[in-house]
Design a protein around this nucleic acid. Structure first.
Lengths: 192, 192
DNA sequence: TTTGTTGGCCAACGTCTGTTGACTTGAGGA
DNA sequence: TCCTCAAGTCAACAGACGTTGGCCAACAAA
């Protein structure tokens, strides 16, 4: 536990501003100048701390991932009864997006992955190293292989329409209704 | 049917180049200079023809929508038996993305809507004026109101993971397998 | 008190962006 | 044949971008 030196504080301020900007506008529309202004610092300091814009983006993503890795994107599913698997998945996913504090790592990543190939690559990595293994642990690797991608499609589709595009009929549902309505669809894929 | 004058030809060349660029890279990363180069024309001509970059984007979207409006985003569903509704929806959607010629209007729109608020607004308009009515015609307005948003989540999630993020397990499925695996999930939402 | 290091600011670079206006070309009607 | 007007080129603008390097102030070690 190092004492938070002065540089650590501004470093953290830059990171916080960067996460907000990247989450709200994506990689390309986020400028180092704007991040620096949010952090009340000179743009050149951002370069000193993070090397480049891409370095800042990487750091902003990594900063949200310093929690224990296990239940990062999916919780431990082996303890969940099979008939509650789908609902658990949807609930966990929605809580990640709407929890307190809201975890903006996925928002950062998704908003940028659509137009930035590096971010898309990182998203694929997360799928392979985290989402797929969690499902494989409970479904077995061969069933998970056929199913995990379609689960991801459904959950990311939810995120896309509810948090990025903000389609009115999707944002209108409260959390409980959303989970109740969407879980059967996820369950249908799990049965395949 | 006016004779295709010289200006119509270059106008069409610009539009074609613009659609490809917008579809591949989204609004912000597409530059007028690059579009002009693809069309072998001076950048200033793009401005003469379309007024501004936003005007070019609007025209690129509208150009893909001059087909008869009825089955633009969804076909006529009233003739489809209830038990084939889900599969029809998924098949139609996948064919729109992978047909010959591939219809890049949705790709243009989706890639940009994630970071560009004007594109997102247009996407919401399309949902309200085209996707929702098609479902309401067969489900009735009150059931469609609760269901259409979740259908959109599922189908757009498919497009997101298969065509934009290119998640390997989703791109690996061939068209028939994809439709067969995903239709039950859509059916589950329709039953709600 | 001097010295070295750290955190920070300022000014500028080269490049790219959307956009504008003036100039040139070429074909078709009078 | 000349004239006109549309189609197209060229050069430049003002601003924003990522990035760089030099300079300054404060503070701790010597």
């Amino acid at each position: 536990m190092a004492t938070t030196s002065r540089s650590d504080q501004t470093r953290a301020a830059i990171l916080r501003a960067a996460r907000e900007r990247f989450a709200a506008h994506g990689y390309e529309l986020t400028t180092i100048r704007a991040v620096a202004a949010d952090a009340s610092i000179d743009p050149s300091m951002v370069m000193r701390y993070f090397g480049s814009k891409q370095g800042l983006f990487d750091a902003a993503l990594a900063a949200a991932q310093d929690a224990p890795e296990v239940d990062l994107y999916l919780p431990d599913l082996t303890a969940v009864p099979a008939d509650q698997l789908a609902e658990t998945l949807v609930r966990h996913f929605v809580q990640r997006w709407e929890g307190d504090p809201v975890d903006d790592a996925l928002l950062v990543l998704l908003r940028s992955a659509v137009t930035n190939e590096q971010a898309a690559t990182r998203m694929r990595e997360i799928f392979v190293t985290q989402v797929f293994p969690a499902l494989a642990a409970v479904l077995g690797p061969e069933r998970a292989a056929g199913v995990a991608g379609l689960i991801a499609s459904q959950l990311l589709g939810l995120a896309l329409t509810r948090y990025l595009l903000r389609l009115p009929p999707v944002t209108a549902l409260d959390r409980a209704a959303l989970i109740a309505a969407y879980a059967p669809a996820v369950a249908a894929v799990l049965r395949a």
